[in-house]
Computed example of a mutant assay.
Amino acid sequence: MPERNIEFGTYGARGIKGHEAVARQLDALAGFVATPITARRGLLARLHYLTRTDHARQAAREAGLTVTDRTLRAWLDGKRSPSRKNLARIQAAYRMVRRQNVARYLLARLNREGRGTRVEFHPLNQSQVGRPRQRVVSYRTLNVRHWDRIVEAWANDDEEAMDDAWVSDAVVDLGSEWGQYEYVTNIGFAA
């Protein structure tokens, strides 16, 4: 695509890809368990979420948590503790299942029956870039009406699809300067 940055940060600009900022915002809206998984309370909250129903158990297995029911019961009862590798699997499965469960709700909130959601683009940080190389980039807002592909890519944790969906469904609507907003300091929206 034209205007894609190949060597971002060469002259000292700082920021993150726009789709990464959107994923962070969607994660905040998803409402994950705040207690760390290393704490007993955080582990139990995640395990209860993953084992409450047969549907949740199946989704957890598909997400990579493949331990026996006996092991799960031992973890829930506090008789045994998961290894670091299993803690990472529990965390990954929890995030994946939570994203899939919340995606439909978030999609309805963001699309708002065709009205869309107002998005704020906070430009990249150019404080470390020499004066002659700085771009004129300002704060912009845009109403994004089509969130389907963006939320689907986020729910599936597919970074490449998320980047493509974010650029083609949202950023190009900024006009001819859309390439300046590929990297940002923050993307904000309230749904």
Rank of each mutant, 00 (worst) to 15 (best):
Y49E: 01
A92M: 09
A21W: 02
A88V: 13
V167R: 12
Y181C: 14
H48E: 10
H48Q: 07
V184K: 03
T53V: 01
I37P: 09
A190C: 09
F8P: 04
R118L: 15
M1P: 12
M1W: 10
H19T: 13
A30T: 05
A93S: 08
A103Q: 09
T71C: 12
N5Q: 15
F121A: 12
M1H: 11
V67T: 05
V167W: 06
M1K: 11
R133N: 01
G64E: 05
Y139H: 06
W75H: 07
T10I: 06
R61N: 10
N125D: 14
L124C: 15
A63D: 00
N5S: 15
D27R: 05
A21F: 02
N111V: 00
A63I: 03
R95S: 01
N143E: 14
V137C: 03
L142C: 14
N5Y: 14
A92K: 07
L26A: 02
A21H: 03
R145F: 13
L106G: 05
Y183W: 10
R118Q: 09
A74Q: 10
K79E: 11
P123C: 07
W154P: 02
T71Y: 14
M162T: 12
N156C: 13
L110D: 01
N101W: 10
Y183V: 14
K85A: 14
Q128G: 11
S168K: 10
G175M: 09
P82R: 02
G188F: 06
P82G: 08
N186P: 02
V167G: 13
G130P: 02
V136Q: 15
M162S: 15
V22Q: 00
Y139D: 06
S81H: 13
R52C: 10
D157H: 04
W178E: 08
D69K: 08
V67I: 07
G116S: 13
T38E: 07
P123V: 09
H19N: 15
R41E: 15
A59N: 05
E113T: 14
K85F: 09
A155W: 00
V22D: 00
A190E: 03
V67S: 06
H48N: 09
E120K: 14
W166M: 13
H48C: 08
E182F: 12
V119H: 05
F121P: 09
A39P: 15
R40W: 03
S138L: 15
R145H: 12
G179D: 11
I16M: 11
W166P: 09
R109F: 04
G114D: 01
R133W: 00
D173Y: 08
L44D: 06
S168W: 06
D54M: 03
G42A: 02
G42W: 03
V171Q: 12
V119I: 15
I150P: 02
R52W: 11
D169Y: 07
A59V: 06
K17R: 15
I187W: 01
A103Y: 01
V129Y: 02
I150R: 02
G188E: 11
F189K: 00
V136T: 15
Q25D: 00
V184P: 07
A155Q: 00
G179N: 14
L142F: 05
E62Y: 12
Y94V: 02
R61I: 13
E20R: 03
G78Y: 10
P2Q: 14
R131V: 09
R95F: 03
Q134Y: 03
T66M: 08
H19C: 13
L44C: 06
A155Y: 00
W154Y: 00
G130L: 04
G18Q: 10
Q91T: 13
V171A: 07
R57K: 10
P132I: 04
N86H: 11
